[in-house]
Write a protein that binds this DNA or RNA. Sequence first.
DNA 1: GGCGTAAGCGGACTTTACCCCGGTTATATT
DNA 2: AATATAACCGGGGTAAAGTCCGCTTACGCC
Lengths: 222, 222
Amino acid sequence: MGQPVIWGSPRAERADAARNRRLLLATAREIITGQGADKLTMDGLAKRAGLGKGTVFRRFRTRAGIFQALLDDDERHFQKQVLSGPPPLGPGAAPLDRLIAYGRARIGFLIGHRQIARAALDGRESVPAGTQTPMSRTHIRFLLEEMCLGAADLDVLATQLTAALDGPLLLYLSSATLTQTAPQVAERLGRGWEDLVQRVCARTVAGPPGGEIPPPSAATAI
Amino acid sequence: MGQPVIWGSPRAERADAARNRRLLLATAREIITGQGADKLTMDGLAKRAGLGKGTVFRRFRTRAGIFQALLDDDERHFQKQVLSGPPPLGPGAAPLDRLIAYGRARIGFLIGHRQIARAALDGRESVPAGTQTPMSRTHIRFLLEEMCLGAADLDVLATQLTAALDGPLLLYLSSATLTQTAPQVAERLGRGWEDLVQRVCARTVAGPPGGEIPPPSAATAI
DNA sequence: GGCGTAAGCGGACTTTACCCCGGTTATATT
DNA sequence: AATATAACCGGGGTAAAGTCCGCTTACGCC
């Protein structure tokens, strides 16, 4: 139990650091559910957790970083359902059905986490929301690949579909709308996603317009 | 009290205010091209424009607001090309071709404006990027409508395609990648968009899964 | 042209994100 | 167990965002 297993390279997180990180995340959740995300301040968080301000910044680097960490945490749980839960979300169903189910689930997840997800956006960072290859994109890419549709550039397609899923909730829908009519919005977006995916995966598309030129260079770049 | 008749529109902008707004936008552009978007500070902007800080905040409400205003300004010019320029971007071509051309143009525009567009994101506002019905979405909606594909919910589809266009550049691609390999990225995304749109518009899709239920309530809601 | 009023303006004030660095403590090694 | 070292902690300091309120000015009306 107390065995400090050394992970790959970056020297495992020190025990006190890990404890404090958990404490800070939990405290952040308290503040958010109690007073709303926009009332979360670095000072306040530190004080309420009984820690110094420097500690908070060391852990999360920036205010948005806290929300990214929270989102990451919840996404991990969500992803577990996707990877090992019952079909059609989990493995065992046809890729197309899984993709549709995944979209609906993701929409629900984002609506449930809209406060945090929005607050995780930060115009001053080079890559705003979460990681550069979000789990969502990876999963969609995987399902698309299994379907063997003749897409010219799977990476781009996966990125665009991920955006079609996240974008409306992160970029275009006002949180007022979301708060007032969340269930209807979820249902509409879910149907829309199903329709979109069904069209995209119908596989009746002419070859690439410019001849058979493969994607520019590295196949996995973007 | 003498009730001043409330006009439908909120009483045109005062002349000095308009002049100052233009001055501030121009000054902001100077700073951005000269020193980069992240060097733009409200104090600095006010001082360089020879105005008070309060004025800057009154005009743009928030730091991100400045970038939103700049983007809005440039988008207006861009949109002029779309509405009255030569085909296939402008009117005169088939809707599908216009949609493809629009996507490519929009990608180019966003890559060219990536600094501003990213900085316009703000996790503390209810609707982060620009307006709630961006011109982009409206235009896409219009073209889709002309195509008469049997989409269940055009508004949602338009929103999702808009996101597929904006999302990759706003949310997922690191600005490092963009700066280093902008042309290749533009080309790949452009091809991807063409492929995506061609699939979506192939019109060989079964009816909606749950029968012929129309979208929940208001047709133009989302 | 003179007047009333709403809008605009400025800059001091408050709050908050973020930096820094000396002191402390967990962990690996011997 | 003692030591070396690297990571962690704290809290004061800075600069920038955002607020307030009294003064000024443009605009519509008489």
